[in-house]
């Protein structure tokens, strides 16, 4: 896979994004608005550290603030890679991209990288807002651990994104994986509240979601300064997810793409 081809995809995606600046800023604004809601819920609870938040040593707003950032990262996978495939279909360019095997790999990798770069840019905006507006305490952040979490999450989140895009290739519309993961990750993954709040059975289901482990590790790295050694169990689980999901997603994507090329439906939507 050639680096210049990946760079060309990234350059093209950023140029396309520039055409929709309002949508980008609107996305940030709407997330900021939801943060405001959580901020006032936290005030309502007197900013107390409840029993479920005690392991993290933070109040509810600090918890949900980081949960949403990580959730956005994970959402970049299931939602956006499929969205990108759909957009390429609409432009009539998907056929051209998927006809050469090397371009397919470059397309998937660049789509994943692009989404994560965009999520990272959004995360920076949130962190600045968190620091300056909401006065979240980031004094303990362990940046090395944060980078490790991002690295290990990238592969499993992207794989789920690639898997979900298979549905767009086969069925054109309707994406149960994105729906399942986006909903499940929000509810079970611990983005809005610690998963330990859930009944025991549901809590155990959250173990099957990469985002649960990413959020758990991120809370420790951000607020307790946990080192890589402290969060290695979470990183190991994320690595296992990646080892399983990366080959599975690539295999499924190739099968789905070849199926669509056989049916001649790559440019149909």
């Amino acid at each position: 896979m050639k680096i210049n081809v990946i760079a060309a995809f990234l350059k093209k995606d950023f140029r396309l994004k520039k055409s929709y600046r309002f949508a980008f800023f609107w996305g940030i604004f709407s997330s900021f608005f939801s943060l405001l809601i959580f901020y006032f819920i936290d005030l309502l609870m007197d900013r107390k550290i409840t029993a479920f938040l005690a392991p993290y040593g933070i109040n509810y707003f600090s918890y949900v603030f980081l949960g949403i950032i990580v959730y956005n990262f994970s959402g970049a996978g299931p939602g956006s890679i499929a969205q990108k495939v759909y957009e390429e279909k609409i432009c009539g360019t998907l056929e051209e991209i998927l006809r050469v095997k090397n371009d397919v790999q470059a397309f998937l990798l660049s789509a994943s990288l692009y989404n994560f770069m965009l999520s990272a840019a959004e995360a920076v905006v949130y962190l600045l807002a968190g620091f300056f507006i909401f006065k979240v305490d980031f004094s303990c952040i362990n940046w090395v651990s944060v980078l490790a979490i991002m690295f290990f999450s990238f592969f499993s989140f992207s794989s789920i994104g690639i898997l979900s895009s298979c549905f767009i290739l086969i069925f054109k519309r309707g994406n149960p994986i994105a729906f399942l993961f986006n909903s499940a990750e929000g509810f079970l993954g611990g983005a809005y509240f610690p998963a330990a709040v859930l009944p025991f059975g549901l809590y155990k289901i959250s173990y099957a979601l990469p985002v649960y482990w990413a959020i758990r590790a991120a809370q420790k790295a951000f607020y307790s300064g946990a080192s890589i050694m402290d969060i290695w169990p979470e990183l190991a689980v994320l690595a296992c997810f990646s080892l399983f999901l990366v080959p599975l997603s690539l295999l499924c994507f190739n099968l789905a793409a070849n199926n669509a090329r056989r049916k001649g439906s790559l440019n149909q939507f």
């Binding site: 140029r15 396309l16 432009c91 009539g92 360019t93 056929e95 051209e96 440019n267």
Partner: peptide, 9 residues
């Protein structure tokens, strides 16, 4: 017949 281009580029 439908030349493959990104309309916004």
């Amino acid at each position: 017949t439908n030349p493959c281009f990104y309309p916004q580029l």
